[in-house]
Simulated scan of single mutants.
Amino acid sequence: MKRPLVIFYAVIIYAAAEVLWWGYMLVKMQPERLGMILCEGMMFGLVLLAGAFYLHKSLNRERTLAEQKKNFLLSVTHELKSPLASIKLLLQTIQKRDLSKAQILDFIDKSLLDIERLDDMVENMLLAAKIENSSYTFPKANFNLSVLVDSIVNRLQITKCDGNQQIIDAEIEPKIEITGDKFALTSVVTNLIENAIKYSKPCETVVVKLFAKDGRIHFQVADHGIGIADPEKSRIFDRFYRVGSEDTRNTKGTGLGLYIVKQVLDRHEASIKVKDNRPVGSIFEVTFG
């Protein structure tokens, strides 16, 4: 990307030099038309500067997107290899060792969790691709959002912490009905809860709330994780955007989760806000209606 930028700046400098030279020559040949030549030169210069400014922004945007795509490929490679290696090891252990039935069932459960993780990631990538090329229509129907959130919380719940602590503290108001795309909203709930878990310390509590108030439906996910700096809050919903570099980042992810969340909520005329939790962490609040 550096070479196109060098060529771009060289062309701009050359064009500016040509404008000044021809302006000087015209004034020298026709000094009585100095005012007109200056006005025309200023207009041409403004157009040139405006074009250069927007072209520069476009090139920078392309460079940023290329870097984000590179990070995306690195993260997807890691995300695929990790659960696949785990599943392979578990199955090889079952195949080569004489295990008890309880051990086999435990290994199968662990394999299924890794498969669910892979399935979530593939669904995210497919949905993001369909949203990007406008091929997804968001079919809407009435369904029970309380049941949906409760089922996702139960699937993502982790109980193998010290003292058998449950890290997801759910406060779900029953019988909340909503009209929307159940598949897409499942992705919204899953991504927000998984993000909260991912960016929190092990066994740190994540609070999930679903309730109705003043004719609106509110869904909140609060964590006590690393938090989000104010300059990043406006960018976290961009496609592929992740803070830092894939070479140095320890958290898992592809940079598509929050992009999907924002796109799906926009199609449902819902809003999402990000605010700081106290003393540390973040709160994502979704409002329908």
Rank of each mutant, 00 (worst) to 15 (best):
R97A: 08
T186M: 07
N250A: 08
I108A: 09
G253Q: 01
E194T: 11
D223N: 15
S86L: 12
L5A: 13
I178D: 01
E67G: 11
A50V: 06
M25W: 00
T251M: 08
S134V: 02
C39Y: 14
N71D: 14
R155P: 00
Y54M: 13
G281Y: 04
Y199S: 03
M1T: 09
K273I: 03
I272R: 04
T179D: 09
W21V: 01
L265K: 00
P4H: 08
R267T: 02
S86D: 07
R242L: 14
A229S: 14
N133C: 11
N133W: 06
S200K: 08
I104D: 02
R117L: 08
A184N: 06
N277F: 02
I272D: 05
L34D: 07
S271R: 14
V286F: 00
I13S: 13
P231A: 06
V264A: 05
V207P: 00
L20M: 13
A15I: 09
L113F: 04
I226L: 11
T179M: 10
V11N: 14
N164T: 00
K198N: 15
L34W: 12
E269F: 07
A50D: 00
E246I: 00
V189Q: 04
A270L: 04
T251D: 15
A229P: 00
A141I: 03
I197H: 05
L265M: 10
P139D: 11
M36L: 13
I12S: 12
E123I: 02
L113Y: 08
L90T: 06
Q92S: 13
K28H: 14
E62H: 11
V261D: 03
N250G: 12
E18C: 11
I12R: 10
H218M: 03
